[in-house]
């Protein structure tokens, strides 16, 4: 059988016929492929030659000291950096094989497939219902019954439905911080993305709300590919399947989470994880 060195997205993870002797944790297909990716703000280079493959329907965590470029890299995946002056990308990021930084790419459609949750929750000053329905209305869906259905499903998936089902027309601004963040998650889920990018989603929340968000991430990964930026290493260890450690704009190490935290291969990684520097 010819060896296949291109990974094809498939429904179920396939075991590689070459490795039947090895442990059968199947290699999941690659959802996001990054090759030789560089990023500039004006003349300052903030990301250097990033190469990695983010697997489908798993949680990948980006960790690293502040200013290491992990948020910049995250925002490159849905091209949110486009709105920043002087921002420039070089290299390749591809989702399911389709490159993102080509001129014919419709950024609007891209952002429906790649959802984003921000560090500071930013619900619109509208009702909970209208917040979650926003992405759908934009897309032209205004049928009340269809909206009701999708809104409910999204709020269920965001583990918020039971708490708000009786007050969907209340303003989202009246909710607690943790609830607001879950509204934002539901809002992002409503447009049915494949990938969910989360930029330190729990950093502004209390421990209980944080725990809820982490449980949510764990549930969501069965249906979505999740990339989460966090400065909290324990969170990364708890929640993610694979972890990437960044420093000064370079990808230092990328491995299964267990391996990174138990047996890091790079000294820098070990120093960071053991807290030798922030």
């Amino acid at each position: 059988m010819p060896t296949m060195d291109v990974v094809i997205p498939t429904a179920e993870p396939k075991t590689d016929p070459r490795s039947s002797e090895r442990a059968t944790t199947a290699t999941p297909p690659t959802k996001i492929e990054v090759r030789n990716f560089n990023f500039y703000y004006g003349d300052a280079k903030v990301l250097h030659d990033i190469n990695l493959d983010i697997p489908d329907r798993q949680v990948t965590a980006f960790i690293g000291p502040s200013g290491c470029g992990k948020t910049t890299f995250l925002r490159s995946i849905n091209r949110m950096n486009d709105i920043i002056p002087g921002a420039r990308a070089e290299g390749r990021i591809a989702i399911d094989g389709k490159e993102l930084y080509k001129p014919d790419v419709d950024v609007v459609a891209l952002r429906r497939k790649v959802g984003m949750v921000f560090q500071k929750s930013n619900p619109f000053p509208k009702s909970i219902f209208e917040n979650v329905a926003y992405g759908l209305r934009i897309g032209g869906l205004n049928d009340r019954r269809a909206l009701d259905e999708v809104v409910e499903r999204s709020l269920v998936r965001a583990a918020l439905w039971d708490e708000v089902k009786d007050r969907l027309s209340d303003s989202a601004m009246a909710l607690s911080g943790g609830q607001q963040q879950r509204v934002c998650i539901a809002r992002a889920l409503a447009v049915d993305p494949d990938i969910l990018l989360m930029d330190e989603p729990a950093s502004a929340l209390d421990p209980i709300a944080t725990q809820k968000i982490e449980e949510l991430v764990y549930e969501l990964k069965t249906n979505y590919t999740i990339v989460i930026v966090t400065h909290n290493m324990q969170q990364a260890a708890r929640v993610s399947d694979r972890t990437a450690f960044f420093m000064l704009g370079k990808l230092v190490e990328y491995d299964d989470t267990n391996d990174i935290f138990m047996t890091p291969k790079q000294k820098l990684t070990e120093d960071y994880i053991t807290g030798r520097f922030g």
Partner: peptide, 15 residues
């Protein structure tokens, strides 16, 4: 299964 047809080129043209 959910296969993602990464068809970024077509968007809602009207929008």
């Amino acid at each position: 299964s959910r296969r993602f047809e990464a068809d970024f080129g077509r968007g809602e043209r009207r929008r």
